Simulated scan of single mutants.
Amino acid sequence: MIRANKRALRKAMRATLGELPAEDIQFQSQVIAAKVMALPAFQNSRTFSCYLSMPTAEVQTTSLILDILANKQNKLFVPTVVPENDHMDFVRLHDEQDLHGLPSGLWGIPQPTAQWNNEKRQSDLDVILLPGVAFDRSLSRLGHGKGYYDKFLSSYTAAAKRPRPLLVALALQQQLLDAGSVPITDTDWKVDMIITPNDIVTKENLPKDSAKA
């Protein structure tokens, strides 16, 4: 039942997002990027992950990525799908030239190579900026159905007892739904924060019955 509900919500949300003008998505993305850069938690961190956005239907991240790269103290990592075992890892993106040189991969998303200038890309993350199809005000996230982020987070936090990164979801206003609208299972990770043009949703401003992670 939950799987069917997820499929139905993905279909409905994709229809909604498909009707948004590109100009609206770009405007919302710029507002969101400014809010992310102003976050104290973001300013106090140095190791980030940010997804490379699809051409349409989600928050665009190119300007945000360039802002992160502009600070030479920052390290930026981006997701890549490993085809041999169909799982996701995060690899370092070094500079703007590196970004523009990435080949196109699945869904038109730039796909990092395993190495850069003969240096292996490696990840160790403080903040992860996540995409998604839909989110709700109880901090639940609906992904695209592959489970890449949920599997990565489970293995990442278990490895060497790493601390849990801060999970920040970036959402167009149309992607943020009322609490309880996104169906989840025990293996679905909730996020710590959702940022839209009009909202910053955190555990601190949730209703008490929605605050469980």
Score class of each variant (00 low, 15 high):
residue 139 L to Q: 01
residue 152 F to K: 04
residue 25 I to F: 06
residue 172 L to N: 00
residue 133 V to H: 02
residue 117 N to S: 02
residue 123 S to C: 06
residue 170 L to H: 01
residue 119 E to T: 11
residue 136 D to N: 06
residue 194 I to K: 00
residue 5 N to F: 07
residue 109 I to H: 01
residue 19 E to W: 00
residue 63 S to D: 14
residue 74 N to M: 11
residue 25 I to E: 04
residue 154 S to R: 10
residue 129 L to Y: 06
residue 8 A to K: 15
residue 206 L to A: 04
residue 204 E to P: 01
residue 208 K to N: 07
residue 91 V to M: 08
residue 143 G to M: 09
residue 181 S to M: 04
residue 6 K to Y: 15
residue 50 C to D: 03
residue 68 I to W: 03
residue 145 G to S: 14
residue 109 I to D: 02
residue 131 P to F: 13
residue 122 Q to N: 11
residue 54 M to C: 12
residue 21 P to G: 14
residue 15 A to V: 09
residue 121 R to E: 02
residue 140 S to L: 03
residue 171 A to E: 02
residue 17 L to Y: 13
residue 146 K to G: 13
residue 161 K to V: 08
residue 74 N to E: 14
residue 91 V to L: 11
residue 20 L to M: 12
residue 94 H to I: 10
residue 175 Q to V: 04
residue 27 F to R: 13
residue 171 A to K: 00
residue 36 V to Q: 07
residue 87 H to P: 00
residue 19 E to Q: 11
residue 188 D to N: 12
residue 62 T to M: 09
residue 153 L to M: 15
residue 28 Q to G: 04
residue 15 A to S: 11
residue 88 M to D: 08
residue 206 L to M: 14
residue 16 T to V: 13
residue 188 D to P: 10
residue 159 A to H: 05
residue 127 V to A: 04
residue 69 L to C: 05
residue 70 A to H: 08
residue 92 R to A: 12
residue 126 D to I: 08
residue 11 K to E: 14
residue 203 K to F: 02
residue 94 H to T: 09
residue 18 G to F: 08
residue 33 A to Q: 05
residue 13 M to K: 04
residue 71 N to F: 08
residue 38 A to N: 11
residue 143 G to K: 05
residue 111 Q to D: 10
residue 129 L to V: 09
residue 98 D to Y: 03
residue 101 G to M: 05
residue 31 V to T: 15
residue 189 W to D: 12
residue 187 T to Y: 14
residue 114 A to C: 06
residue 37 M to V: 15
residue 172 L to P: 01
residue 120 K to C: 06
residue 128 I to C: 08
residue 166 L to W: 01
residue 5 N to E: 15
residue 161 K to N: 15
residue 1 M to G: 09
residue 210 S to A: 15
residue 158 A to Y: 02
residue 205 N to K: 04
residue 78 V to E: 04
residue 43 Q to Y: 00
residue 131 P to A: 09
residue 131 P to Q: 10
residue 104 S to M: 15
residue 178 D to T: 14
residue 144 H to W: 14
residue 9 L to A: 07
residue 69 L to V: 05
residue 136 D to G: 07
residue 126 D to C: 07
residue 95 D to V: 09
residue 173 Q to H: 13
residue 60 Q to L: 13
residue 126 D to N: 12
residue 12 A to K: 14
residue 76 L to D: 08
residue 112 P to D: 03
